[in-house]
């Protein structure tokens, strides 16, 4: 199980990386942490002709507080996220989520930008970013743009990113500081991809009830799913009203769930509902 041949580039400037990807972009791939891309290449499920290693781009490794929020460079690793006081200050959700992402040795290499760009539907980070109202900063020789996380994920390994675009950063707005968040996932074994999970945010601190919750499921479809009916049912519900929370968490019939190797669509829906309720009850 060896990766096929490729050529290897290690740019030291973002402009250089963008120049390399500008030509024949569909045959090239950016290498960030490599924790998903390299196994896919070892299985020969992915065979880019050129790998562009982002390890030399220092700008992508930074976590910076800017005027309207927090800019997390694309190649910041999960371990670095977990160690950052700045990140914790912006949202407690990272501290809840990170221990569930694979294992220490993977978190030491795996990056936030890589997770976003890959868009594995079972990954936690896309759902977290949607819940936080984050956006993804993309750059190409054609220019730079910000795409809201809510609009970024299109399907299984499909995103708004064009082949020639590089994820520069993930931007978390200042508004996320005042969100309360909930997180729950079900994985057969610690660190496995979840068979169902949810990340929830809401600016509900002042009133004691849910105001404008965002409920984002993962691991149950080909992309992170906003559970809009759940969100609507929750508006105005007191956070300690377990009966209404239970009923809201069952409002999933507007969504289409995908089965996986071990679980049917029905099971996925049922487990998603449990995750939603448990996450809500813990908020």
């Amino acid at each position: 199980m060896k990766a096929p041949e490729f050529t290897y580039e290690r740019p030291t400037e973002i402009s250089e990386a963008l120049a390399i990807i500008a030509q024949d972009a569909h045959e090239k791939a950016f290498l960030a942490g490599g924790q998903s891309l390299l196994p896919m290449m070892n299985f020969r499920l992915a065979a880019p002709k050129t790998l562009i290693d982002l390890g030399g781009l220092k700008d992508l490794k930074e976590i910076v507080a800017v005027e309207d929020g927090l800019r997390i460079g694309a190649t910041v690793t999960y371990s670095e996220l977990g160690a950052s006081a700045l990140v914790s200050e912006f949202s407690q959700v990272f501290d809840s989520v990170l221990p569930h992402i694979a294992h220490s040795a993977i978190r030491n290499r795996g990056t936030i930008g890589g997770s976003v760009a890959l868009a594995d539907p079972a990954a936690e980070m896309p759902a977290v970013l949607i819940a936080l109202g984050a956006s993804v900063e993309l750059a190409s020789q054609r220019g730079t743009r910000f795409v809201p996380a809510d609009e970024f994920f299109h399907g299984l390994y499909l995103t708004e990113r064009s082949d020639d675009e590089l994820v520069l950063s993930v931007f978390i707005p200042n508004s996320s500081r005042s969100l309360s968040t909930g997180f729950y996932e079900l994985a057969r074994r610690h660190g496995d991809y979840a068979i169902a999970g949810v990340c929830i945010s809401d600016d509900s601190r002042p009133s004691g009830s849910f105001n404008a919750p965002k409920v984002v499921l993962f691991g149950v479809s080909d992309r992170p799913l906003r559970a809009k009916s759940v969100e609507e049912s929750l508006v105005g519900v007191a956070r300690n009203d377990t009966r209404k929370i239970r009923s809201a968490s069952e409002a999933l019939s507007d969504l289409v769930f995908d089965s996986d190797l071990h679980n049917s669509q029905d099971t996925k829906q049922r487990l998603a509902s449990v995750c939603v309720r448990r996450a809500l009850e813990a908020m």
């Binding site: 490599g34 924790q35 390299l38 290693d53 390890g55 220490s104 040795a105 993977i106 290499r109």
Partner: peptide, 13 residues
């Protein structure tokens, strides 16, 4: 100083 999976890193890295 950090643990990594050596099967998920290239030698050039």
């Amino acid at each position: 100083g950090q643990t990594v999976r050596s099967c998920l890193m290239l030698a050039v890295q």
